[in-house]
Write a protein that binds this DNA or RNA. Structure first.
Lengths: 262, 262
DNA sequence: CAATTCGTGATTGAAAACAATCATCAGTTT
DNA sequence: AAACTGATGATTGTTTTCAATCACGAATTG
């Protein structure tokens, strides 16, 4: 099926064009007919990542133009949103919160806009959420901005994080096993380890597909994480296993109701 | 003149509508004819804050919701744009550039998107311009983000800037007298002084109304600044006076043609 | 007070995009 | 092999939007 691939290229092109592309442009660029592009746009609009206008599409992703947020498969997104809603209940007004990058932490940040918080982040999309907000103070972590995700990393970032202290750090991860948490980027791991050291409480948000997956390098063990928030797709086996660790487990109901945090 | 007011409301409405609004929507919302809306959109597109499509507008401000950039009085903006265009010719591919905050530096940054540069900035809006750009490397300066302008300041910012070296720093200013350059925010001045120390060449972009104005505190003297870019509204008196300093003066023609930088 | 300028609203013919339909083709199933 | 399914490209008539133009009224200017 090359249709999906083509739709991704449509989004990519829209993004490169500064948020908008015309229908003939897209047809020419991708070498297909306008009819096909029209059908693709219908699909993309249906899934909420783009919005049609007379004559073209424009990008509708919540985060301006960083590709990481583009492909929201509706199902995945529902999980992330549920996780974010459950995690939001763990945050209290006045807290000092460190937001890592990642789409789930971004969703959580979105839910917290308007709350009186001290926000610290190395994620540009998250920073944009709070930049104009009068209720939250925003501290930005500097460093080399990783193009794909819009997250500041590198020695400057690690060094600055090392001088901060926060109540809670919200981390994302690429994989979780019984030995601990993993991520796929060494610079990111360095920064995240600093975030762990800087926090009184570490909260990891992760959807259930991450469990059982390793990734490039280990971020930390279970003892470093006080709370894990996950969607209700998590197997019973894993729920029991986490019981045996000294880590609090919050399961976010995917469907409607909420929420039994304990 | 209520035309300006109406254009602001157009932008506001577009922003509230999630980045896009159709032409009939706007006409109905503001109670004017579609013709008027069309003319407004032409103006807004001309000034770069919105982008037209067949059937409507979508918001094109690089800085999502910082109000400081929304209300561009056309006249002032023409100056700033001219200054930015002249300054852009001072920048060479491959340069390492430090962008200060401010609307004129932001305009300049907009013109430079797509060029191969090493970008360093403490301005969130500027960072957003380059974040997803494959041609430029982006280094973000962290710190406390000042809500109104989206600029990172404070000790962390100063400290990080102090560890960087750049080819050129692009600074804005609130006032210029024969004794030097002024700004109105002490934290900002601290950061800008660090930017001056970090740069081989300091370029100040300022419109002609800034000349002769003092402000809260002094940023630096004339000897610290190698180049000043200003619009052609500058008085002959000032042009002569700058001749006597060891600072290069670039006058940006406001109207059409370009450009005699020397 | 007359003239001018500017912003506005309405109209019009031209151009563009839309949705719907049909034909073709490849891969799969029966 | 024949039939079916799904994706694609082309075509059609209809609808929408566009740019240009004219006319009206208010505010400014001489």
């Amino acid at each position: 099926m090359q249709a999906d691939e083509r739709r991704h290229r449509v989004l990519e092109f829209v993004r490169m064009s500064g948020g908008f592309a015309s229908l003939p442009q897209l047809a020419k660029e991708l070498g297909v007919s306008e009819s096909t592009i029209r059908r693709d746009l219908d699909v993309l609009e249906e899934s909420g990542v783009a919005r049609r206008t007379h004559g073209g599409v424009f990008y509708a992703g919540g985060a301006p133009q960083l590709p990481a947020f583009e492909l929201r498969e509706p199902e995945q997104w529902a999980k992330k949103h549920a996780i974010a809603q459950a995690a939001a209940q763990l945050i209290h007004d006045g807290d000092t919160i460190f937001f890592d990058g990642g789409s789930t932490t971004y969703e959580l940040a979105r839910l917290l806009v308007g709350r009186p918080l001290q926000v610290v982040t190395n994620s540009l999309p998250v920073a944009n959420l709070f930049a104009a907000n009068a209720y939250a103070d925003l501290n930005l972590v500097g460093g080399y901005v990783y193009p794909r995700t819009g997250v500041a990393l590198g020695p400057h970032a690690v060094e600055m994080i090392g001088r901060l202290n926060v109540r809670r750090s919200i981390l994302s991860t690429a994989g979780i096993t019984e030995r601990g948490f993993y991520n796929s980027n060494l610079l990111l791991i360095e920064a995240e380890q600093a975030m762990i050291d800087a926090a009184d409480e570490v909260i990891v948000v992760a959807d259930s597909t991450k469990f059982g997956c390793q990734s490039l390098a280990q971020l930390c063990g279970w003892d470093a994480v006080q709370t894990v928030v996950v969607d209700d797709g998590l197997s019973d086996e894993w729920r029991e296993r986490i019981e045996s660790f000294d880590t609090q487990l919050v399961v976010a109901p995917t469907n409607s109701e909420f929420s039994n945090a304990s």
